[in-house]
């Protein structure tokens, strides 16, 4: 473990808590893409299958359980409890155009052709594009609530910090995972436009309006 990965995980944790807080306090999931949340649940379900088979550390297991349970809770809140406030008219990204190519790529490009490894690879690729329905929805609605902006900033920062973690681990531990690094860079690049808007607008107290 290093400081970059620790702050990254905390940023990821913060993002999920911010989202749950927004939904719980406003009793609404307006402006949130349910499709992205389903993709995140799929990412965690396919990545943490080794939760019961390989023990890494208490921290690792606790975080995996937290991510799986909160992602399922988020999907439940969006599609059941606060379903009336779910904005399905603007959440129209065709996720099959993400899941199918990502599924195929995971079969073709992976470290080892085994079920667990292919599912892990699928999860890594899927996570890199899972935010697209959310960004697409924001471009259609033309704006985002401030707390949703904070959620996205924390979520985008987590993988950006993981990139620093991989640089650190490469130089100090000789650790390098090309699949995770490439997908992590793609994922972070997708947030760049939002990061720009967040830093130039939200931090000055304005609301984010798209297209900029």
């Amino acid at each position: 473990m290093n400081i970059f990965r620790l702050i990254g995980d905390m940023s990821h944790l913060l993002a999920i808590i911010l989202l749950l807080l927004k939904m719980w306090k406003t009793r609404s999931c307006a402006g949130i893409s349910g499709k992205s949340q389903i993709l995140f649940a799929l990412v965690f379900a396919s990545r943490y299958l080794d939760l019961f088979t390989s023990f890494v550390s208490v921290y690792n297991s606790v975080m995996k359980i937290f991510f799986i349970s909160t992602s399922l809770l988020t999907v439940y809140l969006m599609y059941f409890k606060f379903r009336a406030t779910y904005d399905s008219n603007h959440d129209t990204f065709r996720v099959e155009f993400l899941v199918i190519p990502v599924g195929g790529l995971a079969f073709l490009v992976n470290h080892e052709f085994s079920p667990l490894e292919i599912l892990w690879t699928f999860s890594i690729y899927l996570e890199s594009v899972a935010i697209l329905p959310q960004l697409f929805m924001m471009s259609k609605t033309g704006e985002a609530e401030t707390i949703t902006s904070h959620y996205l900033f924390a979520l985008g920062s987590y993988r950006a910090l993981y990139i620093l973690n991989w640089v650190y681990r490469y130089y100090f531990e000789g650790f390098f995972d090309l699949i995770a690094v490439v997908a992590g860079c793609v994922q972070t690049i997708l947030y760049c436009d939002f990061f720009y808007l967040y830093i130039t607008k939200v931090l000055k107290g304005k609301r984010i309006t798209l297209p900029a």
């Binding site: 990965r5 890494v56 995996k64």
Partner: peptide, 10 residues
Amino acid sequence: CNHKKKKDEL
């Protein structure tokens, strides 16, 4: 080939 390195990242 590299031994099965345990996946220790989230």
